[in-house]
Amino acid sequence: MNTLPPGGVIPELFHGLFDDAAVFPPGNLPVVDAVPAHRLHRAAWYAEAVGPLLCGAGRLGELAAAVANSPETAAAQGRAAGADGSVAAGGRPLKVGLVLPGGSTELAPALAAAAPFELAGVELATRDAAEAVAALDRLLPPDVPAAVELPRELLRGDGLDAVLDVLVDSPYRAKFRTGGLVAEAFPDEDELASFLTGCARRGLPYKCTAGLHNAVRHTDPETGFEHHGFLNVLLAAQETDRTAAAAVLAERDGEVLAKAVRALTDRQVTVIRNSFTAFGTCSIAEPLGDLAALGLLSSPSPLHQEDR
Rank of each mutant, 00 (worst) to 15 (best):
R202F: 02
C208W: 09
D253K: 11
V248D: 08
G224D: 12
E226Q: 15
T243G: 07
V233T: 09
T223S: 14
F230V: 09
L212K: 05
G224K: 12
D241S: 05
V216K: 04
L249I: 14
P205L: 02
A200E: 10
A244W: 12
L212W: 05
A200Y: 03
V256P: 00
L196T: 13
L249K: 04
T240K: 01
G211I: 15
E226C: 08
K207S: 02
L231A: 00
A258M: 11
P221E: 02
L257P: 06
E255G: 05
L257R: 10
R201C: 07
K207Y: 02
A200R: 15
G198F: 10
L231D: 00
Y206V: 01
P205V: 07
A246C: 10
A246F: 10
R252Y: 07
G198W: 11
L196D: 03
D253L: 10
A245T: 14
A237C: 08
N214G: 05
F195N: 03
G224R: 12
L234M: 05
K259M: 09
F195I: 07
R242C: 07
E226N: 11
D241E: 11
F195R: 01
T209V: 08
C208I: 10
L212C: 01
V256S: 03
G254H: 14
H228F: 12
V256Q: 06
A247S: 08
A244P: 12
T223F: 06
D253N: 14
N214R: 15
H213W: 04
A215G: 08
L196Q: 06
D253R: 11
A200I: 12
C208G: 02
T243S: 14
A260V: 10
T243C: 04
F230T: 07
V248Q: 07
Q238S: 13
R202P: 01
T243L: 10
A215I: 14
A245M: 06
K259R: 15
G211R: 14
R201H: 04
V216M: 06
T209E: 01
K259A: 15
D220N: 15
E239L: 06
L257Y: 12
A215K: 13
R201N: 07
K259F: 05
E255F: 11
D241Y: 08
R202I: 00
L235T: 01
H228N: 07
A245I: 14
P221Y: 06
L212N: 00
L257Q: 10
L196K: 00
H228W: 10
Y206S: 02
L249C: 04
N214A: 03
V256H: 05
L204A: 01
A245K: 06
F195H: 04
T219Q: 11
C208R: 06
A237D: 09
